[in-house]
Design a binder for these strands. Sequence first.
DNA 1: CTGAAAGCGCTTACAG
DNA 2: CTGAAAGCGCTTACAG
Lengths: 359, 359
Amino acid sequence: MPTPPKRKPTRPATLADVGREAGVSAMAASAVLNGARTSSRTAPETRERILKAAERLRYRPNAAARALADRRMNTLGVAAVFEGELNQYFLEVFNGVVEAAARHNQNTTVFTLHDWGRDAKRLAGFCDGRIDGLLLIAPLVSHESLEHLPDHTPVIALHANMPLPKSVNLESDEERGAFEMVNHLISLGHKRIMHLTGNRGLIGAERRIQGYQRALEAARLRRDDNLLVEAAFSTEAGIKALRQWLAKSRGKQMPEAIFCANDGIAMGCLEVLAAAGYKVPQEVSVVGFDDTIAARTTAPQLTTVRQPLRAMGGQAVEILLERIREHTTITAPQTVVFPTELVLRGSATPPPAQPVLVR
Amino acid sequence: MPTPPKRKPTRPATLADVGREAGVSAMAASAVLNGARTSSRTAPETRERILKAAERLRYRPNAAARALADRRMNTLGVAAVFEGELNQYFLEVFNGVVEAAARHNQNTTVFTLHDWGRDAKRLAGFCDGRIDGLLLIAPLVSHESLEHLPDHTPVIALHANMPLPKSVNLESDEERGAFEMVNHLISLGHKRIMHLTGNRGLIGAERRIQGYQRALEAARLRRDDNLLVEAAFSTEAGIKALRQWLAKSRGKQMPEAIFCANDGIAMGCLEVLAAAGYKVPQEVSVVGFDDTIAARTTAPQLTTVRQPLRAMGGQAVEILLERIREHTTITAPQTVVFPTELVLRGSATPPPAQPVLVR
DNA sequence: CTGAAAGCGCTTACAG
DNA sequence: CTGAAAGCGCTTACAG
């Protein structure tokens, strides 16, 4: 006795189901439901019947099947390192990414890496049809790891440590941002300006150093190597570096202003200076870089250099989608530079009339 | 003249390609490369040949094809509203999600909604085979929108405004957290304690209000309706609410402490108070709720109520994966409550000896 | 231990 | 305007 062809109720409806229900073929259903090319030329009443059937069956196109046929997943990958946590910088960029992706009906999937060098192979593994394009956030690439980059998936990089070949690279004009900030301090009357650097070797850190030095030179201020203090891009590093400097400089003159390579370092400075009893900005001005949320919650609020992180994230998505759509092949590395902007708040004022000594 | 069977170099290699290269069938390749069941029983030298061929061809399994055959995408969806930006709360939860997902070799894709009510249908649209399970972050569901929830994809909710039926619901004991925080302020000597609320009507906001009021009552402090100030769960709302309150209260006594419904509001308070020249915590104590990263980046750092957001995100993933694996069907809503915890930092101290006036 | 076959659910030419 | 066929790249039984 043959079993009646009964759909198991737990299985989502397919195009074939809808077609059967509407008395048409699966691809007629495909045409009207999933907008295949021929959709416009379907008879109105057939169309109606199919729509009704789909509604009744709660039909939803299966993404995997569609991706397989289409070679298009409508999903963008975002890769970033996860060192215990995704940080403020990432969140800011990701906001822009998510916003732009949503505008284009694209999904965003996040891949977290422990280490750019080590995980280069995993990165390529992501490009296995589940994403249509890949955005690398602040990647630290080496010539070797570039080997592992996917061939068939367009890649775009934001704040890479070196321009990725065959890719568009987004960066901001950090050298200029640093230059303008130091210039601003000079115009306020500062002459003795310390720079707490980011991680030496990172391109972002080096560019800020260059901007700092160029501004000093342009103003014919002498370069005091003692005021170029190596730190790293974190609050902890800022605290440590400034503390050490103060400890070994007792009795000497304080810097009139401290230009920090990012807001995190600046926060560390504020903490150390407050603890040691120096008044900011009356005795020492302190400025940052990035304009993260944190810059507005310190007291005084931070004068800083704004990078348009969110806009950069959005633009990355736009460019990536363009490349996916057009199948654009990039041969030479391409670079897009975003402007930075000075944000003036309360942490920088003219220097004190009398020199302040380290105490 | 027949064209030689030449692979187009732009196409990623498939199992068939690898099989051909190694002189075996596609499914032999499948067995050793993609770990199908039979993999263990492949002859060592065949195995070796296949591995070599795959390496040479840079073979990568196509995720879409695999998902279609498997009915398993190895991807989890996370849905959250995006009102201009993903906030710290989301970031914190997402950290836990990402971490747990990575541990299980699962991807995470983010779906952003404008509005829970309006986008209920889109939500179901996501459950089209591209994800295996869906995590709703702080969803605002209605009985009606529940209709649209997917039938074939397990769902789990974090901080839902009402327990979702057929789903596991994760929440934390916010009433108790609020109670303990206000109680702590009282034990420091505060009597005049303001509460800046979250969005009225949201269960999380109401629970914090209840905890606040219960603590005042328990200490027999009179309830001053003027100090229960309606705001919403954002920094901007905190700024606006406190500014308005200050503007209409000139000459009156400042609150000794401000209990904010979340850290974002507290950050807004710090900003307003810093701008207006009030010293925190010497003149006013400010405390938050959530213990997001931001709580540690403010100056002073925030005393706050810790919700184990990250752990909750991680746990959500674990439960979801369990449900996917087991095909567990849930009939009655299930709820898991996480404890909160007081985190003492610098933003709350005993009240000033002399009352401070609004200036 | 290995391979030929059928199927996952969709699309894209190609006929009628 | 509509349908039968082939194919996307993989897996899962099922034979040998």
